[in-house]
């Protein structure tokens, strides 16, 4: 039983890797960005767990900034992904402009909230 699951895991990981290798580079960069943002958010949460959440707005804006950028990057990735049929007629330039605008709003709010 354990053997079969572990082999399953191995094949799964292998197929995942091979499937992912096919994605275009620009999407991979976005993925990296998302992972980085999430990692930063996790670090902040861990830090909050150790040190405490005293300036709560700072903590909140820090974490939400990371989560927000991650979410927006995911949205951008969805939109520029060529395999996504839903956004065929959306040019990537437009998607990027939207992304920048949304980020701008997000970080203006965060700067305001930082305290």
């Amino acid at each position: 039983m354990a053997k079969s699951t572990s082999s399953d895991v191995l094949t799964l990981i292998r197929s995942l890797r091979s499937a992912y290798a096919a994605t275009p580079t620009n999407l991979k960069i976005i993925d990296l960005y998302v992972v980085f943002a999430i990692a930063t958010a996790v670090i902040q949460v861990v830090y909050m767990g150790i040190v405490g959440s005293f300036p709560f707005n700072s903590f909140l804006s820090g974490v939400l900034s990371c989560v927000g950028t991650a979410v927006l990057a995911v949205c951008l990735r969805i939109q520029v992904n060529k395999e996504n049929k839903e956004f065929k007629d959306l040019p990537p330039e437009r998607a990027f402009a939207d992304f920048v605008l949304c980020n701008l709003v997000l970080h203006l709010v965060i700067m305001n909230f930082l305290g």
Binding site: L64, V71, V74, C75, C102, V105, L106, V109, I110
Partner: peptide, 15 residues
């Protein structure tokens, strides 16, 4: 589209 409509709203809206 649902993801794009919902996820940014929660983050931005909460902030």
């Amino acid at each position: 589209r649902l993801y794009i409509a919902y996820a940014p709203l929660v983050v931005l809206g909460t902030l």
